[in-house]
Nucleic acid binder design. Structure first.
Lengths: 342, 342
DNA sequence: CTGAAAGCGCTTACAG
DNA sequence: CTGAAAGCGCTTACAG
């Protein structure tokens, strides 16, 4: 074993060609017109020397890092409750590796939402996927205006920043439509988060849309706020149950929050779905094992990641996306927390 | 806005010093003895030009990437069920950022367990944290022998590769000790995974140790294998319940597997903990919301990540660790799936 | 206390 | 079809 890194010069020397040729062959540069015989010599030399091009040299010379950054903007507590990040991550990573890109991970706390521009300005990454964007983030807008490839996982309205998001409005509407079609007219809602999150707004809009279509007046007392946690679902559900005429069904816009609602319902001596039906949102892996198994709206986490990764890399490579934004559809998953109406 | 990157030369020019000085000041090189006045000039110039050192240039010149790789070796399905990776990740990342390191993420499927050495040989990372190591991985052993800084999350016996792991033997023993102290003598076990996983072995050893200490003969019929999934817990539990004399308590070495066991128990018309007590392992965030809330052994996921990150960086920087390996302790968390004996 | 200069390992016009 | 050479933006002996 030599203790010196083998470089492209070594390969060139052994193959009897120049470094230029080595670079052309190994990077498979189109139109370089290298005859097969020469190529083989280079490949053989590279193999013999166990040559691996140094990424730093390559990055410096090319100005490209072939790395994308996944930035999570959220509190630590949120991270712990986030059952999807993993699936999203895997989606991103598989998209990236398909193109020979790597992925750099960075969590940033909500209260200091700067710092990711460092990834760009120091050239660690060629573009970033930002998850959990704030509605007002001047640093991000500036980056986007400077032409930095950015994809939002979620949306920032009125900014024109490309996004990949779930069609939560329609998903929520589907859930509530189902409840209405089962004959319910008093349908409660517990949001997944505070209303300054766009995902919370979207899910609420879907709920309202369904009611309107069903000609059911919206009763604000039936709408409670959750905040990502089971505890918040527990509290919200208790409030709902203490209403003079409690709902007979409830749409909880987050499976994690829904587990708290389950507790409150059981504690009140009520049965799911006999006394009260509930539909969640997200379809976390555990939802299927709730007691009873939770009917919910499946969020395509893996696809979200995959599409975001693909589109970001497309932007980096060609400077254009297939669309200004992507809204992925959800799917209604019926389990035991709702009655079956067929 | 200039459309050319500002480089250290620009800063040097503006500050009226050399690039050497700029580098010394900005990197805060000890013993460089730069007078305060000069430093301030450099800082001011850097600030005025909004200078950010290019990471690629720095990496190439220094030979250091200041990046660590987190490599997950596991099947996609496993990833989806892995409630901890996130917490581990946050721990690693916070350790890394404390030292100015970044973290690169890479999932690798079990069946093609090579590919991470590319991260090293191409100089993307200075060292790697490998999660889910296989017991026999020649590529990894070779890397380690070549002096590449590696930390295992988990262990590879007899290799001398540094590790950070949970003291699963003791944790499991604690769980079973508790059950024994409650008066049980027929205690079942469902493993978290197949026995070729070291974590499965360790947890089983803890179970056996507790029985031996309690002078309870080990009955192999009482030991069933899980495989990370709730479904496997369901099946295993059903088998346990169909024994001629079923266990009165069961230690399920994974909370995720335990939820399946819960289902089987309820389906058999039995109550937890009245008819059968169960203790899990891991303390996933959802465990607290099981019905009934699951007593379990808390695995310090965040700390696992933090310690692994700290130690890896220490290895990279100084070539030594604080210890050849770290075994972090667990904690018994008593909730409602066990009776209280006080 | 500070700078000129070499060098890290690539890529890429450019010229032939 | 192929190579000599410049250059990417840093760090770091070395010399003074």
């Amino acid at each position: 074993m030599g203790n010196k890194r083998t470089t492209s010069s070594d390969v060139a020397k052994l193959a009897g060609v120049s470094r230029t040729t080595v670079s052309f062959v190994l990077n498979n540069i189109p139109d370089s017109n290298i005859p097969e015989a020469t190529r083989q010599k280079v490949f053989a030399a590279a193999k013999q020397l166990n040559y691996h091009p140094n990424a730093s040299g390559r990055k410096l010379a090319s100005g490209k890092s072939k790395t994308i950054g996944l930035v999570r903007l959220q509190s630590t507590e949120q991270v712990f409750n986030d059952a999807f990040l993993l699936q999203v991550l895997v989606g991103i990573e598989q998209a990236a590796s398909k193109w020979g890109f790597h992925v750099l991970l960075k969590h940033i706390d909500h209260d200091k939402s700067d710092g990711y521009s460092q990834l760009i300005t120091e050239n660690h990454v060629d573009g970033i996927i930002l998850s959990g964007p704030l509605q007002n983030d001047p640093e991000l807008i500036k980056l986007h205006e400077e032409g930095v490839p950015i994809i939002l996982l979620g949306q920032m309205l009125d900014t024109g920043i490309p996004y990949v998001d779930v069609n939560a409005v329609l998903g929520s509407k589907t859930a509530v439509d189902y409840l209405i079609s089962s004959g319910h007219t008093r349908i409660g809602m517990i949001t997944n988060a505070k209303m300054d999150y766009s995902s919370a707004q979207q899910r609420k809009i879907g709920y309202i849309n369904a009611l309107e279509k069903g000609k059911i007046p919206v009763d604000e007392r039936l709408i409670k706020e959750g905040d990502f946690t089971p505890a918040s679902g527990y509290v919200a559900m208790k409030e709902l149950l203490s209403l003079s005429t409690p709902p007979t069904a409830v749409f909880v816009a987050s499976d994690v929050v829904a587990i708290g609602a389950f507790q409150a319902i059981k504690q009140a001596g009520l049965q799911i779905p006999q006394d009260i039906e509930v539909i969640g949102f997200d379809d976390i892996p555990m939802a299927e094992y709730y007691d009873p198994p939770l009917s919910t709206i499946r969020l395509p986490a893996y696809d979200l990641g995959r599409v975001a990764g693909d589109q970001l890399i497309k932007m980096i490579l060609t400077n254009e996306m297939d669309a200004p934004g992507f809204l992925l559809e959800t799917e209604l998953v019926l389990r035991e927390s709702t009655k079956h109406n067929d």
